[in-house]
């Protein structure tokens, strides 16, 4: 009786494991499918190229051009990466290669705190600090009149937000490089910096790409903090001091309102679909580079 019980329990556990696996594995597809069905109304009535590349956003008169949002999202994301990627890389190298282990133990909680701050708090910080900083200081420095609510403000806030995520992965990547590799390079007469530059970064490259890809995907999808400082103006930004609008902000700002306008809900779902597709694309590109690296140069 006891034995039977055990076997049954084993079977039940096994079944549950498979169910959980299938659930997790099918979620992305279900999400995709759901968004596609919801946005079908829009995709069916309009040309896909028009939707993606038209600049006119007038839902009231049935004009849905996502181009300003896509461009806004790309600007904000790339600029944020441009700021935080070098900072993260240099910090990770310094912390893992140049300091004592004790220093890393102090760094870790600091990074974790940064990662744990809710994004709305980052948004408030952006409004109170970054936005005035840009309108009173950075803008005049470049001879530009700006309200401060801008692509640059969003990128700055965003870059601080993604630092802990990228940095944590990078530190792990550099920590797992065997010390013997470093010893080999040094014993051949390389300086510490040559070792870092030529040997360690090369060895860490797949990990570095993964870390940056992860940060990029996160930055692209970040909603709240960006929405609070980016200005939310549907216009193609001409410079980083111009306000803009991003895809996640579009959805968050408008969903639930004005849904009486025909196809409006569909349009917002389409924005979500673009977001999902872009994250998927980042992922694929990332894996492509990592595979390529592992095949040809490891």
């Amino acid at each position: 009786m006891y034995l039977l019980n055990r076997i049954q329990r084993h079977r039940v556990n096994y079944t549950w494991m498979i169910v959980s696996l299938l659930l997790v594995a099918s979620l992305p597809f279900l999400l995709f499918l759901g968004l596609y069905l919801k946005s079908f109304l829009l995709i069916h009535d309009y040309h896909l190229g028009d939707l993606l590349f038209s600049k006119v956003w007038k839902p009231g008169s049935g004009k849905f051009g996502f181009y300003p949002f896509i461009v806004g999202s790309i600007w904000v994301t790339l600029l944020a990466m441009l700021i935080s990627a070098p900072i993260c890389l240099l910090t990770a190298i310094y912390v893992t290669q140049y300091t004592r282990k004790r220093f890393l133990r102090i760094m870790h909680p600091a990074i974790d705190i940064l990662a744990g701050i809710p994004s709305v708090v980052y948004g408030v910080w952006g409004i109170l600090v970054i936005v005035p900083f840009i309108s009173c200081f950075v803008g005049p420095l470049f001879g530009v009149q700006t309200l401060g609510y801008s692509i640059l403000a969003a990128a700055l806030v965003l870059s601080v937000m993604i630092i802990p995520f990228i940095l944590n992965i990078l530190i792990e990547v550099f920590r797992t490089i065997p010390v013997e590799l470093k010893e080999a390079s040094l014993s051949l007469g390389a300086t510490q910096w040559q070792t870092v530059k030529i040997v360690l970064i090369k060895k860490a490259l797949p990990g570095i790409i993964a870390a940056f890809g992860f940060g990029l995907a996160r930055a692209f999808g970040e909603t709240m903090a960006v929405l609070m400082v980016v200005g939310n103006v549907v216009k193609l930004p001409k410079s980083v001091f111009d306000p803009g609008y991003t895809l996640p902000a579009l959805i968050a700002n408008n969903y639930g309102e004005m849904l009486s306008i025909p196809r409006y809900e569909s349009a917002l779902m389409f924005a979500a679909l673009i977001l999902l597709a872009v994250s998927l694309f980042f992922n694929l590109v990332m894996h492509f580079f990592i595979d390529r690296y592992n095949k040809f140069s490891a």
Binding site: P178, E180, L181, E183, A184, S185, S187, V199, K202, K203, S297, A298
Partner: peptide
């Protein structure tokens, strides 16, 4: 230097 296990440069 020749170490315990070979660590070829990447």
């Amino acid at each position: 230097l020749l170490s315990q296990r070979p660590y070829p440069l990447p």
